[in-house]
């Protein structure tokens, strides 16, 4: 997999094709959302029904993990699912590469997840109470907690990057070796893999955030278990 091509520069920032593709995805999603939600009605049409179904499904999935925080987490988790799904699927379009097949992109998303975990955790539990769980059940475990935070973030980035990059590379190799129409089943696999990886990334992010928001409850539960 070759590096992303730099198209132009904005000061110190190099604008690569990956960034432009991301902007394209953002533009498509933004315009589509604006057009689709301009005239919402209580009696919905097919498109509005589909959108309501998607949003409600995302909200329902969040509610199943955090029943009281669905409205609060919906923008972040929902955008993760939608963006990663579309970013994964962009790889199917000829001459375009999936942004999620770039380690810089997935690392940025993983960093956002890492930061959001602590952001939501501190907002939910309070600064002192939230960081207290790193010392539980023993302060000796603090290095392991910190290592866990780093490794799971890296795992998030590498998992998504590796899967999407390998899919594109496999499709390219099959196309080079077997011919024009042979990679079609592989593209079908790409679609399924894109959906699965988006779901996994978003669900893991949700679970991490939920763990952070419920850290105090987990701590209390552990202490009660130890006393018993």
């Amino acid at each position: 997999m070759e590096d992303a091509m730099v198209l132009f520069r904005l000061g110190p920032l190099a604008i690569t094709s990956i960034v432009v593709t991301t902007w394209g995805v953002m533009l498509v999603l933004g315009v589509f959302s604006w057009l689709a939600t301009r005239n919402l009605a209580l009696d919905p049409g097919p498109l509005q029904t589909a959108l309501e179904g998607i949003v409600s499904a995302i909200e329902e999935s969040i509610s199943n993990v955090l029943p009281d925080q669905a409205q609060r987490l919906l923008p972040f988790i929902g955008t993760l699912w939608i963006y990663i799904l579309f970013a994964n699927l962009v790889g199917i379009v000829p001459h375009l590469h999936a942004p999620t097949g770039n380690l810089s992109v997935t690392s940025g998303l993983a960093l956002l997840v890492f930061l959001s975990v602590h952001w939501f955790g501190v907002r939910s539990e309070g600064l002192r109470s939230y960081f207290k769980h790193y010392l539980s059940p023993s302060p000796l475990l603090l290095p392991f907690h910190l290592l866990s935070e780093v490794t799971r973030t890296v795992a998030l980035a590498v998992r998504l990057f590796g899967n999407i990059m390998s899919l594109e590379m496999a499709a390219l190799l099959v196309l080079l070796v077997a011919g024009l129409l042979v990679p079609v089943p592989l593209l079908m696999l790409h679609i399924a893999e894109a959906m699965v990886q988006a779901y996994i990334f978003g669900m893991l992010a949700l679970i991490y955030v939920a763990g952070a928001m419920q850290s105090q409850q987990n701590l209390d539960r552990n202490e009660e278990g130890g006393e018993a």
Binding site: A4, S33, T37, V55, G108
Partner: peptide
């Protein structure tokens, strides 16, 4: 690539705002 990394974070946060403004809130309101 640090530039892509940084821009991706910014892009995602902007996308969160766009979808929150034009997708989630209107749908949830209706």
């Amino acid at each position: 690539d640090w530039s892509t990394f940084t821009l991706e974070i910014i892009n995602f946060l902007i996308l969160v705002w766009i979808l929150k403004r034009f997708l989630y809130h209107p749908i949830l309101r209706v």
